[in-house]
């Protein structure tokens, strides 16, 4: 029998395993400390605005010509879901700041009422995004605001950073007239500042489908790099084409983004095309039997999305390019 003081295989192996276990425990403890104890977390969290509190400065809190049928309610990012539940996400991902809403009676007597929702989205672009994402088929109301429409029982519009919804408990023309009067009054009493939506003017008017302007905030056309992309539909012969554009901070950045979009398309199985065109730097890709065109002019990124006919897409691109040129001056 030999006496040995140096560890043998099993002992050594076991020793290392135990050390590994200790390291695992240390890692576990280290990971656990990132999940803040609730007692620590509340110190870091901002105070929550109470639900339904009234606010002197709110537009709906001021006296209105119609009798209110309920208290003014105010919701913030924390509480928005309490009011509109599953739809809160749509607003929250688009920069929602605050919602004020209140019901008004249509007349002093009677049960009919409408509810006004004023979504403060922080800036006009964001207000337009939520407006366009929910656009229903309905008649435009340009007299009220550049972006406004009505349906049988409701009125929707963008005013500066605000997105306004007025929804009636029943449908009638008198109700709509009252709501329009209410909206006009509210617009008058709610001064807004800040830049208007320039992009709306950048799309050529010819052959544009009415009410088709949309703003896609994130992940437009499935591409992560596309943020704040405006789209509009164009009637080209029998088909509808989608033109898009977006204002980027600088010219080179617009050019770079158009290039990256092309790479994105190619990475997903698109085929690069080289059509004859006068537009400098135009990229055309055939992907899943549709055509994607993208180019830049100045700091504007523009293009055509999902066209079925290349020639139509190029024609629309040309119109768009020329219109942008006029605008540049």
């Amino acid at each position: 029998m030999t006496t040995t003081k140096t560890p043998q295989g099993l002992e050594k192996w076991l020793g290392w395993m135990i050390l590994l276990l200790l390291m695992g425990i240390a890692a576990g403890v280290f990971k656990a400390q990132y999940e803040l104890n609730p007692a620590v977390a509340i110190k870091a969290a901002p105070p929550v605005a109470p639900v339904g509190s009234t606010n002197q400065g709110s537009a709906l809190g001021k006296s209105q010509k119609l009798p209110p049928a309920g208290p003014l309610e105010i919701f913030t990012t924390d509480t928005l879901a309490d009011k509109i539940n599953g739809k809160a996400d749509l607003y929250l991902t688009n920069g929602f700041v605050r919602l004020e809403c209140r019901r008004f009676r249509l007349a002093d007597a009677g049960q009919e009422w409408f509810e006004v929702f004023v979504y403060d989205m922080g800036e006009a672009r964001r207000a337009f995004a939520v407006y366009s994402l929910q656009q229903r088929s309905g008649g435009r109301e340009p007299a009220l605001a550049p972006h406004a429409y009505q349906t049988e029982n409701a009125l929707y519009l963008v005013h500066g950073q605000y997105y306004l919804e007025i929804i009636a408990s029943f449908s009638s023309t008198t109700a709509l007239d009252r709501m329009k009067a209410f909206a006009a009054d509210w617009i008058q009493n709610t001064p807004v500042s800040g830049p208007e939506l320039q992009e709306a003017e950048l799309f050529p008017a010819a052959r544009r489908v009415e009410n088709s302007l949309k703003l896609i905030g994130t992940d437009a056309f499935g591409y992560e790099g596309f943020r704040d992309i405006f789209t509009a539909e164009y009637r080209m012969g029998a088909a509808n084409l989608t033109a898009f554009l977006s204002l980027r901070p600088t010219g080179p950045e617009a050019e770079k983004l158009s290039d990256e979009y092309r790479k994105f398309l190619l990475a997903f199985g698109g085929q690069a095309l080289n059509p004859a065109t006068d537009i400098p730097g135009l990229k055309a890709v055939n992907i899943l039997d549709t055509y994607e065109i993208v180019f830049s002019r100045g700091r504007i990124l523009a293009g055509v999305h999902g066209a079925e006919d290349l020639q139509q897409a190029l024609e629309l691109s040309k119109n768009l390019y020329e219109h942008l040129g006029r605008h540049e001056k």
Partner: peptide, 16 residues
């Protein structure tokens, strides 16, 4: 002690 610094409570599993 209550706080977010690494030498404070954070989420350390102090009862482990």
């Amino acid at each position: 002690t209550i706080g977010e610094a690494f030498w404070q409570l954070r989420g350390w599993p102090v009862n482990w």
